Simulated assay, not measured.
Amino acid sequence: MLLIQATRDAVLKPLTTVVGIVERRNTLPILANVLIRKNGSQVSFLANDLEVQITTQADFGVGDETQSTTVAARKFLDILRALPESGDVRLSLDDSKLTVQAGRSRFALQTLNATDYPTVSQVQQWDASFSMPQKALKQLFNQVHFSMAQQDIRYYLNGLLLVLEPGHVRAVSTDGHRLAHSGATVDGLTAQMDAIIPRKTVHEMQRLLADDDTPVQVDLATGQIRFTFGQIELISKLVEGKFPDYKRVIPTGYTRHVQIPREALQASLQRAAILTTDKLKGVRIQLGDNLLRISSSNAEQEEAREELEVDYAQESLDVAFNVTYLLDVLANVKTGDICWSVQPDVNASVLITVPDDEEFKYVVMPMRI
């Protein structure tokens, strides 16, 4: 039975959308497959890893029949990518084989029964819903994602805190050594709640969201979040646990502020980072006499020194930081200058903000080197 006939790129687009969450190793073999459902001309592609589920729609089905199957996602993707761009791709289902034909190329792929494919059970009622431009939500995630923990035993840190307030949404992440905070206004939002979005879900949304003003609908309930935009629906479980009180971490009352060109600081830190060790990524930051000095060294007694002219004539300050934490924020906040706020205390954290965005705040704890 012929299921689909379309150009290679037309089939490749929805498959690429969903295949990102497919793990190469699964406890359930069928989760390495993508679920293809055809209902007349409408075809849906669905992938699921039991935590995140992505579905997308396309309109290239052949005939009025309803049919569904599952096929190895990455194998199918590799075949489509290897086919020539010109000409149509035909997908046919016969017995337990999915046949992919394009010109004189033909592949017969093993399938697994669609009825055995696990799908996420959606909640009956959402507790909070709002809509915002895709580029605004993408920017919100881009500004904080790099501070999420990776495989921390404090599992609630392995994700992003989304805080809903009337007319406002915030995103916060921390790994215990640094914290990133950003926010945006949202029209029509009346609910007040928060949720921890898993790390994998955040990265998928960054990949899928467009840099335009088309809307993304966000629905929240206990234990589950749903994003709907364009032809895509992403449903994810939420991380259970109590996120740290981020308001207590963000310093207030800092009196010493230095405005620094972002690209110049980034380039200096990148050069200084060359002579740091893999285990100890520390750089020393010294402020004084209208100069910001950056230095690093390693076990081979090698040293790097950088200087930037800044407007700072207060007492000298000498503090060390993990250079990776500083480079992360400079790579993700696209602005001309950053504001570096400090206190005259070697144990005090640095607060990094940007002149044109009152919502963004990045806090880095000092380190000893």
Rank of each mutant, 00 (worst) to 15 (best):
E51N: 15
M132T: 12
Q53R: 08
W126L: 02
N142H: 12
S68W: 06
S92V: 02
T70W: 01
S86W: 12
H145E: 15
V100I: 13
V123D: 06
D88V: 09
V52T: 15
L137E: 04
V52R: 06
K75L: 14
A58G: 04
A114F: 06
D88W: 01
V144F: 06
R81W: 13
A73M: 09
R90T: 10
S121C: 01
Y117Q: 10
A58S: 12
S44Q: 14
P133H: 01
H145C: 11
S44L: 11
E65K: 14
S121Y: 02
Q139D: 07
A58D: 07
P133G: 05
T119G: 02
Y117L: 05
D64E: 15
F141H: 07
D116W: 05
Q53H: 09
A108V: 03
V62Q: 15
A102M: 06
F45K: 05
L140T: 07
L77C: 11
L93W: 12
S96C: 08
D78K: 11
Q139K: 11
A58R: 03
L140D: 02
A82R: 14
V123E: 10
S86L: 09
F60E: 00
A82I: 07
S44R: 13
V43C: 07
Q67R: 14
Q134H: 02
Q57Y: 11
T70E: 03
S86D: 14
D94E: 14
D49A: 04
T69H: 02
V120S: 08
A114K: 05
S44V: 08
R106S: 12
I54N: 00
G103I: 13
M132S: 05
G103S: 08
L109H: 03
L98D: 01
V62W: 06
L98K: 01
K135G: 01
N113T: 11
D64Q: 14
T99Y: 03
W126H: 07
S92T: 13
A114I: 01
D95Y: 07
V62N: 07
N113R: 08
F130H: 00
S121F: 03
I79Q: 05
K138T: 05
R74E: 10
G63Y: 11
P118H: 12
Q101W: 00
L46F: 00
E85L: 10
Q143M: 09
K135V: 12
T111A: 03
R104A: 14
D127Y: 05
G63K: 13
N113E: 08
S68A: 14
E51M: 13
G87N: 09
A47G: 01
R106V: 10
F76W: 05
T69L: 15
Y117F: 15
H145N: 15
L46T: 15
F60Q: 04
T111E: 00
V43G: 06
K135P: 00
Q139C: 02
G103L: 12
R81F: 10
L80S: 03
I79D: 00
L112K: 12
V62D: 10
D49C: 04
N142W: 03
S86K: 15
T99M: 02
S96H: 10
T55Q: 13
S92I: 03
Q67F: 07
A136I: 15
V89M: 02
G63E: 13
E65C: 01
Q143H: 15
R104C: 09
